[in-house]
Design a protein around this nucleic acid. Structure first.
Length: 553
RNA sequence: UGGGCCGUCGCCAAGCGGUAAGGCCCCGGGUUUUGAUCCCGGUAUGCGCAGGUUCGAAUCCUGCCGGCCCAGCCA
């Protein structure tokens, strides 16, 4: 019992201690995406972490859009993010929050900092500011505008707010320490002019708070106890704390950092993902090959499998790259347990059973799931002409090949054992038909002559089946680290990442499947009915993931 | 080169001074009307390296080495 308990990660341990020591009564976390792109697998980890923490420790988790940069943000993104969070199985506490909800308070506190002599309006240009900031090894120097009086700063800041200055003409900066070895402490900008209308506040503002200034204060306003973010914000923590100490905020949240999730053979950079979409390398943000939450949804991943994957990889401060195989394991594990089985022939090859009467048909019955009895049985007609997969027949083969070979037997899944006699070829020497015979009385029984077939193949009646299109996906990139420095990730794109198969033949039970229904096409893999291209008259299935294959096709 | 952080099996990851969990991958074997699933078994005398403290060190100390991040009016 206790030996199977999962050890707590470092953040869970901090929370457990805070709760035990009474540092906090109840925890509140938040997932704070910027609505400037679609969520990807890395965000999924953050979502699972933040919402999971709240769930496991009896707290709550907010969804807050960090919308301080109207130039890059859009409502389309906030809508997709809301949908993705819910699809993943989480519900935020109360209403959706926006950092922009706090613009008034944030502005008021900026004025407060000015009055305290801790903030000033700086007229340095961006380039000048960079020069004054100094370098990694040398201290920066004070802005010549740092000595402006409180009154002057108040007046200038008000003029900024009123739109009297052009973008970039000046910015509000906080007086921290130009000599700090931490670059973020060198009098950072907390308000800048951006004459862009905002998706939430419209044209009310033309000055917007910076992330560093807005984030911690928003956390404080929402009563966030544990503000969890990724490693690159580690150096921002002293600044985060500086604001909390220097402003009359209602709470004292604390920031903790963990390493972001990366998966090999893919990219998780919003910029690159957006580029793939904008330059049409993929079919939109929800292309089934994309590592976005919407792409994975369309690909056929289940929310549970993504949660399980995030759980498997753990939470640490170690930068690492998780093997794609782990993600594949998570979805296979879920679908193996929960997807109903079906047969679908991807590359049809006709088999004519010469000893089976024309016009005759019997009904074969197959379990919906081999290990579960709560799935309804499937019925399928068996007829003289069938489809099997081209890969499942060879004129001759060595003994390792366990499928249909001339002169040999094979079991048709859930049906008869058959033996091949000959094959028919076209003018180009392509095999276009196999002539075979059923072995009598082998449905549910082994052949009476004791010659058992080596293998089992799937099939579909050539008379009654469901025609469909099947889309096979492979990894979007051929390089194990398309994101790694130096290379152009676009050149790593796998030209064969999508293979569209039309004229596939599926068993009749798939005729009434619905959008996003998932199946295991036996011996092939897991498939989902595509939410974009599939319709009742033209079914389209996406391969979520192939079956584990230790033989290698 | 200033500062911050990180180095335990091919990949994730436990371990918090008492003698290296687990998962993925991989390799054997068993069951099987899916070359799937499932079930058994195997895989670090060693924890970046070198010293030191200790009866005892992945865990403590010292010094190195390696990697990542920071000089946006992005988040």
């Amino acid at each position: 019992m206790s030996e199977t308990e999962k050890p707590l990660n470092f953040i869970e341990r901090i929370i457990r201690d805070d709760l035990e020591q009474g540092a906090v009564k109840q925890i509140t976390t938040r997932f704070p995406p910027e609505p400037n792109g679609y969520l990807h697998i890395g965000h999924a980890k953050s979502i699972c972490l933040n919402f999971g923490l709240a769930r496991d420790f009896g707290g709550t988790c907010n969804l807050r859009f960090d919308d301080t940069n109207p130039a890059k943000e859009e409502v389309e993104y906030v809508e997709s993010i809301k949908r993705d969070v819910q699809w993943l199985g989480f519900q935020w506490d109360g209403d959706i929050r926006f950092t922009s909800d706090y613009f008034d308070q944030l502005h008021e506190w900026a004025v407060h900092l000015i009055k305290e002599g801790k903030a000033f309006v700086c007229d340095l240009s961006a380039e000048e500011m960079r020069e004054y900031r100094g370098g990694l090894t040398e201290a920066g120097k004070d802005s010549p505008y740092k000595t402006r009086t409180v009154e002057e700063n108040l007046e200038l800041f008000e003029k900024m707010r009123l739109g009297e200055f052009d973008e970039g003409a000046c910015a509000l900066r906080v007086k921290v320490d130009m000599a700090s070895p931490n670059m973020h402490m060198r009098d950072p900008v907390i308000y800048r002019i951006k004459k862009a209308s905002h998706h939430q506040t419209g044209d009310k503002w033309c000055i917007y708070p910076s992330y560093d200034y807005a984030h911690g204060q928003s956390d404080a306003l929402e009563g966030i106890t544990h503000s969890v973010c990724t490693l690159e914000f580690e150096e921002h923590r002293p600044l985060y704390e500086w604001f909390i100490e220097n402003l009359p905020v209602p709470a004292t949240p604390h920031q903790y950092e963990f390493s972001r999730l990366e998966v090999n053979y893919t990219v998780t950079s919003k910029r690159k993902l957006k580029q793939l979409v904008d330059e049409n390398h993929v079919d939109g943000w929800d292309d089934p090959r994309m590592p976005t939450v919407s792409g994975m949804r369309r690909r056929g991943f289940t929310p549970a499998s993504i949660r399980e994957f995030c759980d498997m990889v753990g939470v640490t401060k170690v930068k690492g790259v998780v093997d794609m195989g782990m993600l594949e394991f998570a979805i296979r594990e879920d679908l193996n347990k929960n997807a109903s089985r079906a047969m679908c022939v991807l590359h049809p090859l006709k088999v004519t059973l010469t000893n089976y009467p024309e016009g005759q048909a019997e009904t074969m019955v197959a379990p919906g799931h081999p290990q579960r009895d709560d799935f309804p049985e499937r019925e399928m007609p068996f007829t003289r002409e069938l489809w099997i997969d081209q890969d499942d027949f060879r004129e001759s083969a060595n003994k390792k090949y366990k499928r249909l070979v001339i002169g040999k037997r094979v079991r048709l899944r859930n049906s008869y054992v058959i033996e091949a006699d000959e094959c028919v070829k076209d003018a180009d020497d392509n095999i276009i038909e196999v002539k075979a015979r059923i072995i009598e009385n082998t449905v549910g029984n082994n052949p009476e002559d004791g010659i058992k077939p080596k293998g089992v193949i799937h099939w579909v009646s050539a008379d009654q089946n469901v025609n469909c299109e099947v889309r096979l996906y492979d990894r979007l990139f051929t390089d194990i680290a398309p994101d790694a420095g130096g290379k152009d990730f676009l050149e790593c794109i796998n030209p064969d990442s999508l293979e569209v198969l039309s004229g596939c033949k599926a068993e009749m039970s798939l005729a009434n499947s619905g959008i996003e229904d998932r199946f295991q096409f036996e011996r092939e893999g897991y498939f989902v009915q595509d939410s974009k291209f599939s319709n009742p008259d033209a079914l389209v299935f996406n391969r979520v993931i192939s079956l584990r294959d230790t033989w290698g096709k």
